[in-house]
Nucleic acid binder design. Structure first.
Lengths: 230, 230
DNA sequence: CGCCACATTGAAGGCAGTCAAAGGTGGTGG
DNA sequence: CCACCACCTTTGACTGCCTTCAATGTGGCG
C-alpha cells in the first residue's frame, strides 16, 4: 500500500479531499528506521508527531530496574505522539521500531497551521484522542483489577476477532508481536506469560505452535477473559 | 464561588467572552447530588458530560470481585465524561459523588452545536483530552512499574506541592479524600495503604494524624517517590 | 451512649517476579 | 549448506509483595 492510500484511511485525515491530502503530504517528512531504532525518548522535547506508513512501532515506559510496559503497538495507518503536541512539551514515553518502519513526521508548527486551515482535522483529533483515552482506561482496568490469565485471554479474544480464520481446529491466527513483547504489553514478563499460556494449553483451551495460536474452546476462553477464574 | 466564576476558570471554556459564557450556561442544566449518589454507571448510554461546580466526584472502575480502581477525583472547575461524547456511545466507568455535589450537565447534542459555533472550544477540548491522556499514562506507569510505597510517596509529594503549607514541623497538608479512597486511587486496598503509611511514619519521614499529614523529611520522600527502594 | 463506617494491626496464603539453566529458533557468514 | 551465535522461549525452584481474613481500635453523629 502506498503512502497516499495509508493517509486516506488514517482517521486523522478522514473527510479530507484530494487537495487537502496533498497539503498534508506536503508539510510532512518521510523517515525510515531499521528494526530496533529509538524514534524518541521519554522527556525528550516533543517537536512533532508521527503516522506509521509501514512496519510497526512500540510506545513504552521503562522502570528504573528496566522492566518495560508497552502502552501501544502502532500499526500502519495509525498515529502516535499526537497528544504530546497539545499537553506538555515533552514525549511522555519511549518509541522504538519493532521492524523496518516508514513514518511520516509532522512538525508541531506545520501541523498547527494545517489545523487552522482545516477545522475538520481538529474534530478528527478529538475523536482520535478520545479513542486513545478509552484504550488507556481499559489498560488501567486490566493492570489494576485483572490477573494475567484474564488479560491474556482478553488479548487473544480481541486478536482472534481481528485477524482470526476459522478452521476445523477452531479459530487460528498469528501473534502480531513476539511473546516477550506481548508479556510487556500485558504488564508482565516472558516467564509469567509462558506459564499462563501453558495453563491454557494444558486445559485444551488453546493450541500454541510458535506464533500460531488456535482457539479450541472459544467459550472457555471467553469466560476466562471476562473474569471467571481459571 | 458562583457558577459563572467556576465556568470562567474551567479550561474547557477559556478564551470565551461573557456572551459565549452566557450561551454555555444557557444550554446546560444544573444538577445536585447528595453524598454517595451514583451519577452514571459503566456501559450506560453517554448522553452528555459534566462540569463540577462544587463538591467532589470519583470516576472509577469495579472488578467482578468488587475491588475498586479510581481513575480520577474530579474537583470544582474540572470536567468529566467529555471523552464519552466522541468515542463509543457509553460511559466507560462509574461516577459517584463523594460529597454533596453540584454539577452542570451538557447534553451531547447541545454541546456539539455549541462547538460548531465556537471553534475555540474544540481546541480547548483537545487540550483537555491531551491532559487526561498524560494522567492515564502516568497511572499505567505507576500501576505496572512502581510499588505501593513509591506510588504513595509520589501522591503525597504532588499533594504537598498543591496544597501544602510550610511550618516548623515540615510541610503540612490534609488528604483530600479518605484513606480507603486513596488506597483505591493508588490501585490497592486500605490495609496495604495503612502499612505503607506506617513504614513512612516509622522512619520518621512523615507524621500522620487522621487526615493531616506532615512531611518531615522531604528529601527522603522525594527519593522514594522517584523509585529508590524503601 | 451506642452505632457504624473507617482505620489499624496481625497472621496466613497466593500470584507474580526473580534467578538460574536448558532448549529452541532464526539469521549470518564462512 | 551448515555451523555458530544471539536472542527468544520454556521450565523449575524460590522469594516477596500484596491480598485475604479476622479481630480490634477509633472517631463522628444521631
Amino acid at each position: 500500500m502506498n503512502t497516499n492510500e495509508i493517509l486516506k484511511k488514517c482517521p486523522l485525515f478522514s473527510g479530507l479531499g484530494e487537495r487537502e491530502i496533498a497539503e498534508v503530504t506536503a508539510i510532512s517528512t518521510s523517515k525510515r528506521y531499521p528494526k530496533g531504532a529509538l524514534i524518541f525518548s521519554e522527556d525528550e522535547e516533543a517537536k512533532g508527531f508521527f503516522v506509521v506508513i509501514s512496519g510497526k512501532v512500540k510506545v513504552y515506559k521503562l522502570s528504573l530496574e528496566g522492566k518495560e510496559q508497552i502502552l501501544h503497538i502502532v500499526s500502519p495507518g495509525e498515529t502516535f505522539a499526537e497528544a504530546a503536541l497539545f499537553a506538555g512539551s515533552t514525549y511522555p514515553a519511549f518509541a522504538e521500531s519493532l521492524a523496518q518502519t516508514q513514518v511520516l513526521y509532522f512538525s508541531k508548527q506545520g501541523f498547527l497551521n494545517l489545523i487552522r486551515e482545516n477545522p475538520q482535522i481538529s474534530l478528527n483529533i478529538i475523536a482520535s484522542l478520545s479513542h486513545w483515552l478509552r484504550k488507556f482506561v481499559s489498560l488501567v482496568e486490566e493492570l489494576s483489577l485483572k490477573d494475567i490469565s484474564t488479560r491474556l485471554s482478553k488479548y487473544l479474544m480481541d486478536l482472534s476477532a481481528k485477524s482470526g480464520r476459522s478452521s476445523e481446529r477452531g479459530i487460528e491466527f498469528e501473534l502480531d508481536i513476539s511473546k516477550s513483547q506481548l508479556a510487556s504489553r500485558l504488564g508482565t514478563i516472558s516467564e509469567t506469560l509462558s506459564r499462563a499460556l501453558k495453563k491454557l494449553r494444558d486445559r485444551g483451551i488453546i493450541k500454541v505452535e510458535g506464533k500460531k495460536i488456535s482457539i479450541l474452546q472459544k467459550e472457555a476462553l471467553e469466560e476466562i477473559s471476562s473474569g471467571i477464574p481459571l
